[in-house]
Design a binder for these strands. Sequence first.
DNA 1: TGATCGCGCCTTTTT
DNA 2: GGCGCGATCA
Length: 723
Amino acid sequence: MCYNAAGMDNLIKELNPQQQKAVTASDGPVLVLAGPGSGKTRVLTHRVAWLVLERDAAPWSIMAVTFTNKAAREMRERLEELLGPSRARRLTLGTFHATCARVLRREAEATGISRDYVIFDADDQLRLIKQVIKDLGLDDKRYRPRAVHGAISRAKNELIPPEAYDTGTYYGEVVKRIYEHYQALLAANGGLDFDDLLMKTAQLFAQNPAVLANYQERYVHILVDEFQDTNQAQYTLLRQLSGMQHNLFCVADEDQSIYAWRGADYRNIRRLRDDHPDLLTILLEENYRSTQTILDAAHAVIRHNPDRTEKALFTRRGQGPEIAVHEAYDQDDEAQFVVDTITRVTREGVHYGDCAVMYRTNAQSRALEDAFVRAGMPYRLVGATRFYARREIKDIVAFLRLIHNPAEGVSMARVVNIPPRSIGQKTTSALENAAQERGVSVYEVMHDLPDKLGARAQRALATFLEMLEGWVAAREHLTVAQLIDRVVEDTHYADYLRDGTEEGEERWANVLELRNVAAEYEETTLTEFLADVALVSDVDNLSDDVDAPTLLTLHSAKGLEFPVVFITGLEDGLLPHSRSFDDPDQMAEERRLMYVGLTRAKDQLYLTRAFRRTRYGESDPSAPSRFLDDIPPQLTGGAKKPRRTRTQTQWDQGSDYRAGNLQSPVSKPQFRAGQRVRHADFGDGLVIESRVDGADEIVAVAFEDVGLKRLMAGLANLERLEG
DNA sequence: TGATCGCGCCTTTTT
DNA sequence: GGCGCGATCA
């Protein structure tokens, strides 16, 4: 396409003046503060291309950090078009975690961490924490593994090692002890957790100026997407890496900061300003995604947050249709409304894949899924049980991890008796005790079993060990997919899973899917495969080739856009979540979450809530989200009738509470029979009929070229012609 | 050793 | 309404 500077000229012309200014800003620190849908990622991508094509930067001297693997992959694809495959391949593109994982593998000598370390995911981390709490003889009711893990994770994100951990409380002292043991246990297993990837890399750079200097010299340009969601460890890494050249290019939107609970610190934006007096700040305020109605609603919600930089977002896309607000009876009724509405809009030319249904908590997906299944409508679900967190997948991966490093205890404990082979709790605890006494791994103990074990256990262990050693020996000449085949065959894993239930079949299908993924890794080693598996998230696998509505949490929706968006469960307690009620900072984050959801929509927004909602198996009445009150009524067609909640009696008396009969306030039609109209794809035509259906207006148009079409006025972008 | 049952807590969000 | 965990029994 355009692998040269002339091509770049044309690309630059496609950008608006502010975007151009950002892309072509001279070296030195730059901060792009931009609203949703303003082409942030596009600016970042163009900046990379511009550096290569106009500034003759070597591709290998550029590092771009994205928030998800998916974003990294899409950016690389785009850059392949702009720069050609060979140059695109030399760019360093990826998440902080993936980038750090690679650095640590390369710098094994300096860190003293084995090159063969495995990455422990959230599930592994929790297991380890539980183990430590048990080993220390602590009460897991008083020291909840999840809470302790959260505290340790937060400490790591602030680069606080165990020895410096000090909260001045007794509880904190105990956490400190758990933290110390946890790190020791991780090390003994040759593991690093998610947070270690960042912390250990920052420590490496802090303690080895020579190593750091190498990276500082190499990476002349560092670019960061979604900068508002960086945590302290990540900010430190950026400071370290850009310490020599100072050419940092960050793209951020404070209003979309929704990961404070994970340690993200939007104050990093201020830090960046303070640390770089010569920082060039550029605002991007034009929105290319949404209608003015959607932007107005989003602004009306976000403007209540304190301490934000006011941005004047605008669009040239026009007013667009009103926002539909729907009150359903309960979550099933709400789900039915979603399904019915999707059915209706798809009849008018919207594709399934154009629709997204969002919610605050994963638990809300159940009622929605049920309704989709009942209606026979396809859907794609993001998140709930992540693929790599599924039991069967973790089992197979644990076998692979054992082959990779038989001394790794967490995987050993997981699968030594999977499928059941008579190695029960008594046997495993005997092995673990012996291992601890001798200061070796369980794997080594297996070679020299303690005498006190019964003959039956001895035989079972010997068989298992033989099997494992066979795999380890075979590792050299087998691909990852072939290794999976061997494991599945030797353990009869298929028989174990396929118990005749539907769930069993599904689990087996997942194993086959993992095998398919592995088959694509033909060239890669087991080590690389395992590293990738640990860092992949579910959104990353969201493919565009399935035409189905997407169900996802508001968090996963970050960075995505859809023509038609449903935000469900708009109730106090859910959004904002009740856990955030008593903390103003958390409430501000809930509001930003709502803002992110609203601004995912390009054309049409549906906001739904349920009058009663079942939580923890109990159905309770729920109040509308306070955020709904902030949306001006004229945007939702409710100017005449104030929004009002029905009482239980009113619900009971109304015979029409089922979705479909219940409609949002009616707006007046914009089209009438006899009008001439123009459509971008279908050309000119004559309006035959127009009726208002819910919040949408359905227009039948006889087009000169393509004949009669029924369109939704709001979505179709029909232009009225004079005369 | 492994299957079954009751209990408590749970659900905020994920690289 | 479900999952993990501990106690109890075949």
